[in-house]
């Protein structure tokens, strides 16, 4: 069942086309990585998928029972969050906001969902700690739990491992992979790291202001673009 269908979508800033000719579908349970160089339109596309930006032309169709406010999102951290006084629990619980609507306070169910999502990502023991006292990897797990609180269907992750050390990076990739495997949640992730992307993701969308490649990760390794991006030595063709 397709959750997202993009038909000939183009995005523009101030009349300048940033990315165009996007045709792809994302099905339930897919793990899609969007790769491409800086300025290739990855973040713009994600804004479009979140409904924060309208396409200049073409259409983004959401699957029948998916609405924009049912997509969980993990943005890149901004500098003011680094010293924001908030507990892990407060941050994760705020992911329930859109489901709660205009009603004041959070319900008991909201709190249970927040606790169970913290447990899924192994941050339950640090729920009363301050967000700013955590390590980079732990902070990302907190933001991932918050994103999970906003959705049961689809997660959009914007370069989640940005700025993490290699150990924390691997750790977070594994956590995301486990989520994808165990919960069948659909994942769309922007990544710089193509090697890891082809290893974990089921599908790859390679952008260079238009679509260079869309399809399964396995086939991507065989394409010219894939080989070039992967460094050309993936199966010894370059050596």
């Amino acid at each position: 069942m397709p959750l997202i269908t993009c038909k000939d979508v183009a995005f523009a800033y101030d009349g300048n086309i940033v990315v165009h000719g996007l045709n792809f579908t994302v099905n339930q349970g897919d793990y899609l990585c969007i790769v491409g160089e800086n300025g290739s339109g990855k973040t713009t596309l994600m804004q479009g998928l979140l409904g924060l930006m309208r396409p200049k032309s073409g259409e983004i169709e959401l699957g029948e029972d998916l609405r924009h406010n049912q997509i969980g999102y993990m943005p890149q951290q901004n500098s003011s969050q680094k010293d924001f006084p908030a507990s892990v629990y407060e941050v994760v619980l705020s992911g329930r906001l859109s489901s709660r609507g205009a009603l004041p306070f959070y319900s008991k169910r909201d709190k249970e969902i927040a606790l169970s999502n913290m447990e899924k990502l192994g941050i339950l023991p640090m729920r009363n700690k301050s967000f700013r006292e955590l390590s980079g990897g732990q902070q990302q797990r907190v933001l991932l739990s918050r994103a999970l609180c906003a959705t049961e269907k689809m997660l959009l992750l914007d370069e989640p491992v940005n700025g993490l050390d290699p150990v924390a990076t691997l750790d977070l990739y594994r956590a995301i992979n486990d989520l994808s495997r165990d919960t069948k949640i659909t994942i769309i992730m922007i990544s710089h790291d193509v090697r890891t992307a082809v290893e974990y993701a089921s599908h790859i969308l390679h952008l260079q202001n238009s679509r260079v490649y869309f399809g399964t990760s396995d086939l991507y390794k065989e394409t010219a673009a894939g080989r070039r991006f992967l460094g050309g030595d993936i199966d010894g063709t370059n050596s």
Partner: peptide, 9 residues
Amino acid sequence: DETFARATG
């Protein structure tokens, strides 16, 4: 996090 709040509706 205004971006997150806006993105989730």
